[in-house]
């Protein structure tokens, strides 16, 4: 599948490869995976460093607390390295990892939900450690406004947007199963969620279009 999506920002910490015209992250992942399989251990390190934050945000999108998200990331890597021999197409490594993390996160979230009393508790887990726009990391008024309005979206919108924000080529078939919506409605739902967010932001003087 050719990538004609807009260039995504290079993953931080990738040094000289973080140029404006950097290849998409999934393609870098494919190269790192190939390097590793060809005997270069540094390839695995690069892959882990680049993809771990993506897997983290994927797991957190499902409302897992930080420790459960940590476990999902570790389990995903263990499964990937164990199954590396059967992953013949390096181009598929990004999708394989993100789909695995989503499936693990979804399972863990369902397990937790049976134990937790309300779904709300669960969704609150996705709030930052010290919630609120005064949070130092969101000192930027614009980011704080964004945070506030994302919190006003439905849980389904928040989840979908967080998954897509970190993975611009998500596998809709698996998202469909996990979010309980038909494959054909994911694109329109994403569009509606973004539209709703844009609408909320437009009414907020703290938000400046970047």
């Amino acid at each position: 599948m050719a990538s004609t999506t807009s260039p995504r920002p290079a993953t931080p910490g990738r040094g000289d490869r973080a140029a404006a015209e950097a290849p998409p992250a999934w393609e870098l992942a494919a190269r790192d995976f190939s390097d590793w399989r060809a005997g270069d251990p540094a390839g695995l390190r690069r892959l882990v460093e680049a993809l771990t934050p993506v897997l983290w945000h994927t797991a957190r999108a499902y409302g897992l607390n930080r420790e459960a998200a940590d476990d999902v990331v570790q389990a995903t890597w263990l499964a990937l390295v164990r199954g590396a021999d059967s992953l013949r197409d390096p181009q598929a490594v990004w999708r394989w990892a993100t789909v695995t993390a989503r499936r693990e996160a979804w399972r863990a979230a369902r397990r937790d939900r049976r134990e937790a009393t309300t779904d709300d508790q669960h969704l609150d887990a996705a709030a930052p450690p010290s919630a609120g726009p005064e949070n130092a990391v969101l000192a930027d008024a614009s980011a704080a406004a964004l945070w506030r309005h994302v919190a006003g979206l439905t849980a389904r919108c928040r989840r979908l947007l967080r998954v897509i924000a970190f993975d611009d080529r998500p596998d809709y078939a698996s998202i469909s199963a996990e979010l309980g919506m038909p494959v054909g409605s994911i694109g329109p739902t994403r569009g509606r969620c973004l539209e709703k967010l844009r609408h909320l932001l437009a009414d907020d003087p703290q938000w400046r279009v970047s």
Binding site: V137, L138, R162, L194
Partner: peptide, 25 residues
């Protein structure tokens, strides 16, 4: 998969930055 329009892509980049800052790994 579907292509994402430029405006949507920009907003998704903002979201990505926000979550990266607010809830980092």
């Amino acid at each position: 998969t579907e292509e994402v329009g430029a405006a949507d892509a920009a907003l998704l980049r903002d979201l990505r930055r926000m979550w990266t800052a607010a809830d980092p790994a």
